[in-house]
Design a protein around this nucleic acid. Structure first.
Length: 668
DNA sequence: CGTCTCCAGGTTTTT
DNA sequence: CCTGGAGACG
């Protein structure tokens, strides 16, 4: 059978067309469960088989997980080694460009990347320097204003204007610290491309075929980046679904789809509307729900799969009962239908809902994994260690230096730090240089003890710096380093009343070391160095490091579940104020459509069975609230729902369990 | 001057 | 519930 024949057999006509439409711009509107990933991986394989070199292909995805999955699938289909194929997230791609070409903007290639926490810390320090009391500022919203400004989504207005000087100072600090924030990972490459046509040309020559997945979630700047690259070759394939746009709060703008049609008028458009994932009932409910959104490209998903089960809705007393219900139901279904743990997905709107559910799963002895939440690399203990590495690789990095200057405690209090700061300001140099200067000059403003302590700190950094930069045995070096600073002793001391916590934190540090070891010995890793590693880990989330551990129930936010599917899905906390989220609506009434899309994404993750729970009572911070069931429940076709009283379920379940017990006895 | 202890306040989603 | 800041001790 020829390749073409095989493709025709394995794909539906639209998918086939998608795979084989190679030169020129292509827009694919791919509904939930329409075999999107499969189709685009086939498309890449098809390109490779046609003789397009790996190095000419750039595939941009939304998460590292998706990137990994995509390249693995392509590898499997083609059976080729994929050394030169670029499949990455926008941010990782941005890092790649900056590592190569950031110098033209006045940064050095050993730049640090600041995540949200670093960014907030920097804004705070900046405000302090400007003699503005950080306590009077909402740093969190300031951070988001800065993002909007930087990515050109918003302009300064009468309310935000007052922060302009902090913003400008913030930008200046980044430059001085040789650091970039997440937004820079996209905006700086665009800046380079606009200012240096020869560099742009280089990338255009390199990446002649571009694919963008989750196109509805690209931001304006991300689109600009892609457009700049693709304008000449015009071989660009964008795949998206406006109904699944759930990241507008992060600058995603699904009107990019319209813009794309304008910028590439010769575009071919294909709609993938057959759903291969969900039962008829689930799909119908999803279709019905999303039809309430006014702002969408019309599209009707259909499925050949039978109607299947009704969607079951439960109203537990409180979040504890809810969690127990989920745990019990999982145990029950696992036994009854022999469903694997990894075929269950528990989806939640906010991370805070995870705690109660984790408790119940733990109590029931159900193995689970949580994705999302604070990334492993954002945990303080891990960040501490990373901060040391950052300072060693980039001494200008004041934010990270401040993080470690007194961690573990070495007698550097507020006063000493203030003094170092003043020296740095006078000399117009980094804190690190200021410390060097103080030590060399034998500065008398500080006590001998403090000075000795600073000197020791410098020695420590310099000693290990050389070893890390050599790029050899980094994990081993790190292990030594951690024991050298006696981080364990530090933790024990910090958490005297909670030894368990200290142990857990230390464990994370060890895991971090192990990860480094694994990374540096990975044969696929051509040239491992500490810079690369540091860049990598700031733009990675926790799921990316956990291998696909099978045999575990998946607990995650709806956002994190995008692109995934589960046999059985539990949707917990389906209450007004949670989904739709009170804050989202508060912010802007029109956000309701995005909340609805979020709910839509959640529903369409389910293949066979969907359980929805809405608590009658819920603890929120200190008090107990009585939420109403989500308004979205009313939008679902009532004929597809089965409203279940929690009590009767409990009883039913107990009965079932009893039956099983009896059966088991008989079988013996 | 640094560290420890206690108390108030705060969380939507994430690269 | 956990973090971070302000005030008391050593």
């Amino acid at each position: 059978m020829t390749d073409i024949e095989r493709l025709k057999k394995e794909l539906n006509p639209e998918q086939y067309k998608t795979v084989t439409t190679i030169p020129g711009p292509l827009l694919i509107i791919a509904g939930a469960g329409s075999g999107k990933t499969r189709t685009i991986t086939y498309r890449m394989a098809y390109m490779l088989n046609k003789g397009i070199p790996q190095s000419s292909i750039l595939a941009l995805t939304f998460t590292n997980k998706a990137a990994k999955e995509m390249s693995e699938r392509v590898k499997k289909i083609t059976g080729k080694k994929l050394i030169n194929l670029t499949v990455s997230t926008f941010h990782a791609f941005g890092v790649k460009i900056l590592r190569e070409d950031i110098e033209c903007l006045g940064f050095r290639t050993n730049f640090s990347i600041y995540d949200q926490a670093d960014k907030i810390a920097l804004i705070k320090n900046t405000a302090r320097e400007l003699k503005i009391d950080p306590n009077t500022l909402d740093l969190y919203s300031l951070a988001s204003i800065f993002s909007l400004i930087k990515t050109d989504i918003a302009k300064w207005n009468s309310t935000t204007e007052v922060y302009k000087n902090i913003y400008e100072e913030y930008i200046e600090h980044l430059r001085i610290y040789n650091a970039v924030d997440f937004d820079d990972l996209i905006t700086l490459p665009v800046k380079i491309f606009n200012q240096y046509p020869d560099i742009l040309e280089k990338y255009r020559e390199r990446y002649k075929y571009i694919m963008v997945d989750e196109f509805q979630d690209t931001s304006r700047v991300q689109y600009d980046l892609v457009k700049l690259l693709a304008e000449k070759s015009r071989n660009i394939c964008a795949v998206g679904d406006d109904d699944q746009s759930i990241y507008s709060w992060r600058g995603a703008d699904y009107s990019n789809i319209l813009q794309f049609e304008k910028d590439f008028p010769e575009v071919a458009e294909i709609k993938l509307e057959q759903n291969y994932r969900s039962t008829g009932n689930i799909l119908e409910a999803a279709n019905q729900l999303i039809s309430n959104n006014k702002n969408r490209k019309t599209k009707e998903l259909w499925t050949g799969i039978e109607s299947g089960n009704l969607i079951e809705i439960y109203y537990p007393e409180n979040e504890q009962k809810e969690s127990e219900f989920i745990a019990d139901m999982i145990s029950y279904l696992k036994k009854k239908d022999n469903i694997h743990y990894h075929d269950f997905g528990i989806l939640i709107r906010t991370n805070s809902l995870a705690a109660a559910i984790e408790d119940a799963l733990l109590g029931a002895g159900i193995p689970y994994k949580v994705s999302g939440g604070t990334s492993f690399f954002q945990r303080q203990e891990v960040k501490d260690i990373i901060a040391y590495l950052r300072v060693m690789t980039n001494p200008e990095d004041d934010v990270n230096l401040l993080r470690i200057i007194n961690t573990p405690r070495r007698g550097m209090g507020k006063k000493s730090i203030e003094y170092i700061n003043s020296v740095a300001e006078n000399k117009k140099c980094s804190l690190f240089s200021a410390i060097c200067a103080i030590c060399v000059a034998g500065d008398s403003a500080l006590g001998d003890k403090t000075k000795a302590s600073l000197q020791e700190f410098l020695n420590l950094i310099n000693f290990f710096k050389a070893r890390f930069l050599s790029g050899k045995n980094m994990a081993k070096t790190l292990e030594e380093f951690v024991s050298n600073i006696d981080y364990w002793g530090f933790l024990v001391n910090e958490y005297q009343k909670n030894e368990k916590l200290a142990k857990w934190k230390y464990k994370n540090v060890q895991i971090f070391t192990d990860l480094l070891a694994r990374w540096e010995t990975d044969p696929d890793n051509i040239k491992p160095d500490i810079y690369q590693y540091l860049n990598r880990i700031t733009i990675i989330t926790r799921d990316d490091i956990e291998d696909n551990e099978d045999g575990k129930v998946n607990l995650m936010t709806i956002h994190a579940a995008k692109g995934l599917e589960f046999d059985i899905v539990f949707l917990a906390g389906v209450e007004d104020t949670i989904i739709p989220h009170a804050r989202a609506i508060e912010e802007n009434e029109t956000n309701i459509e995005e909340e609805r899309r979020l709910f839509y994404v959640a529903i369409t993750r389910a293949k066979n069975k969907l359980y929805i729970t809405a608590c009658k009572q819920r603890r929120y911070l200190k008090d107990t609230i009585e939420p109403k069931p989500s308004r979205f429940l009313v939008e679902l076709p009532q004929s597809l729902l089965k409203n279940c009283e929690e009590k009767s379920v409990d009883d039913k379940e107990k009965l079932m369990k009893m039956f099983e017990g009896i059966n088991a006895i008989f079988k013996k």
